[in-house]
């Protein structure tokens, strides 16, 4: 005999689930992943495998310890954290260091708070910044991209942003960076983390996520527009001291950050207004670190700082409730 189910309305549910969202983001990261593997070869594959498998095993372990069952492993969030962490590391990162990153991401970044939905900071970025501060040399040695290198040996190459910072320190101007071409960073021929080197591949993934409705335009557009406008203003003011806004758009981790890290559901605001505030904040911090900070790149720091600001942004960017003036009192 079939049981009649008594549930409260609505009885219909949209097909959208956490799983579908997570796997869509993973799919959208594939072009960037492919470029990384193409230019960094077996070394990149090594980092991807260690990071993703490490995150999945640790997530499973944590779920067991918490007595939650392994069902949550299938939601794709641990795999996505592993993928994002790998994309944010140089291909030459030692294996044990990748595993330390996985431990920080999954255990300290996520499970100690109660798992998916409760973490205040983007787990992959927590791990990346942890590694960057703990192992600054390993985390800032960038193998030169070459067409699918099979050897684990690497020749290092500065990132465009690193070169800019060095030039500034040495000469007070950005030097050659003023003539930096657009094609190399678009297609992945620049030094950098495995997953950040091709702005074009990341843009394709980002547009896919927008088209699927997995993310909305508010965070990436406000983030990118802020970086573009602010770096543009400085560039107009002094093109010898400041690089062009186009250079800033395609170099570093901006595309990866704007489309895939800042848009993390759990750690970003929920309202459209809040998302724009969040994106603008990410943009401002990124630009100030890049132009005036001690680090060449500021995307990770910017997003983490704005993650911390998310609760207060949510508080002050509430929706205006239908039929009310301010969202609180009724119109008379």
């Amino acid at each position: 005999m079939t049981t009649v189910v008594l549930t409260p309305s609505p009885h219909l549910r949209s097909p959208q689930t956490i799983e579908r969202a997570m796997y869509a983001v993973i799919l959208a990261l594939l072009p960037g992943t492919a470029v990384g593997v193409y230019y960094f070869g077996v070394n990149a594959i090594r980092v991807f495998l260690l990071s993703i498998v490490g995150c999945l095993v640790l997530e499973g372990l944590a779920l067991k310890i918490r007595g939650r069952g392994l069902e949550a492993l299938k939601d794709g969030s641990a795999a996505l954290t592993g993928l994002l962490l790998a994309m944010n590391l140089p291909s030459s990162t030692p294996g044990w260091m990748v595993l330390v990153g996985a431990i920080v991401a999954v255990l300290l970044g996520k499970q100690v708070f109660g798992g998916l939905g409760y973490n205040p900071f983007n787990p992959a970025l927590v791990a990346r910044v942890f590694l960057l501060i703990s192992f600054p040399v390993a985390l800032t040695s960038w193998p030169e991209p070459r067409a699918f290198p099979l050897s684990l040996d690497t020749v290092t190459k500065a990132t465009p942003l690193g070169e800019m910072k060095t030039n500034l320190l040495m000469t007070g101007t950005i030097g050659d960076i003023a003539n930096y071409g657009l094609m190399d960073p678009l297609l992945g021929r620049m030094g950098g983390s495995i997953g950040e080197i091709s702005a074009a591949a990341l843009l394709i993934g980002g547009i896919y996520l927008l088209w699927r409705g997995i993310i909305t335009w508010h965070i990436p557009v406000s983030y990118l527009a802020t970086v573009f406008a602010l770096t543009g203003a400085y560039w107009v003011y002094n093109p010898e001291r400041f690089a062009s806004p186009v250079f800033h758009m395609v170099t570093g981790g901006l595309m990866l950050g704007a489309f895939f890290m800042a848009t993390d559901y759990v750690t970003s605001p929920v309202t459209a207004k809040g998302m724009i505030v969040f994106g603008v904040g990410c943009g401002l911090i990124t630009v100030f670190i890049r132009l005036f900070g001690g680090y060449p790149e500021g995307v990770s720091f910017a997003i983490l700082l704005m993650n911390a600001a998310t609760p207060i942004i949510d508080r002050y960017t509430r929706t205006r409730v239908f039929g009310t003036v301010t969202g609180k009192e009724a119109r008379t």
């Binding site: 956490i18 949550a72 798992g115 939905g117």
Partner: peptide, 8 residues
Amino acid sequence: RACVRCGA
């Protein structure tokens, strides 16, 4: 499951 704050 827990809310993931997607804003949908």
